[in-house]
């Protein structure tokens, strides 16, 4: 296959970026998208040019490190697939692809296709956990959990934190990411004690980081490589509303976990 690639090149966070055109021949349909970029980079290095910087690590669709927008779609054309699991057989000989980083105010570009997603970590640090210090746990079977609840919690917990939801959202909202964690713990008995303070703290941090609001477009779930459901956003909204009615339970720690 032959491809024409327009790739976003940007030296660092402060410089201005631009699209640069590259022609690539001999693309095998069995290559992953990232292997296609590897081949391009080997060629660029051999020609004395700087390779395209892109984030990647596990290359099996689970670490959440990779992610670029391909011709307007986060993680490319195939549903429920990360870049590393997207194979070139999804494209046709002669295709022209526009490859750019996640675009969001909360995700500044560091170089080329690499963005800074540490805002997502700070949302977790604000409340995306169950406070169970090491050594304090009762026997694992002490509290039975209905299978349905455990399965729903697992559906939510499958989020890989890649940020595609933010990139796909017209408001650059991190609602789906945040809701998945809120919802996972809302389904479990262990998550109940901190349930309402958690949702408040996480939403507050999300706003503080500069993510947009959710206006129910549903682009996030469509782009999500793990198909995290919009139902979790509904769960977050319910819990958030309830938390706001519990005025007596104030959150002590303030914004700015990072």
């Amino acid at each position: 296959m032959k491809l024409t690639l327009h790739i976003w090149r940007q030296q660092n966070a402060k410089s201005k970026g631009r699209f640069v055109k590259y022609d690539l021949d001999d693309v095998s349909p069995d290559m992953s998208f990232l292997e296609m970029l590897d081949v391009l980079n080997e060629k660029l290095i051999a020609e004395g040019q700087e390779p395209v910087a892109f984030d990647h690590d596990c290359r099996e669709g689970i670490c959440g490190t990779c992610g670029v927008v391909v011709s307007g779609r986060a993680h490319g054309p195939r549903d429920r697939t990360t870049m590393c699991q997207l194979h070139m057989r999804e494209f046709k000989d002669g295709d022209t692809l526009w490859i750019e980083p996640w675009r969001a105010k909360a995700f500044p570009v560091l170089r080329d296709l690499i963005v800074d997603r540490s805002a997502l970590d700070r949302i977790i640090a604000a409340g995306g956990f169950i406070g169970a210090p090491t050594g304090s746990a009762p026997d694992a079977n002490a509290i039975p959990i209905p299978k349905e609840d455990a399965d729903l919690a697992m559906d939510a917990a499958a989020c890989i934190g890649c940020g595609a939801c933010v990139a796909a959202c017209p408001n650059a909202s991190a609602m789906l990411f945040t809701a998945a964690k809120v919802s996972q713990f809302a389904k479990l008995p262990q998550g109940q004690p901190e349930r309402y303070r958690r949702v408040k703290a996480m939403v507050r941090q999300m706003d503080f980081e500069g993510f947009g609001n959710c206006t129910n477009h549903g682009e996030c779930s469509a782009a999500c490589p793990k198909a995290i459901s919009l139902d979790h956003i509904a769960q977050l909204n319910r819990d958030y509303l309830r938390s706001s009615l519990r005025a007596d339970r104030r959150i002590v720690s303030e914004v700015g976990a990072g």
Partner: peptide, 22 residues
């Protein structure tokens, strides 16, 4: 054995049987 207890307490959604046990 302590590890499993710890992880369940943290909300790790291990697979369960219909009776609610692991």
């Amino acid at each position: 054995v302590n590890i499993i207890d710890q992880c369940v307490a943290q909300g790790v959604p291990f697979a369960r049987e219909y009776g609610g046990l692991l």
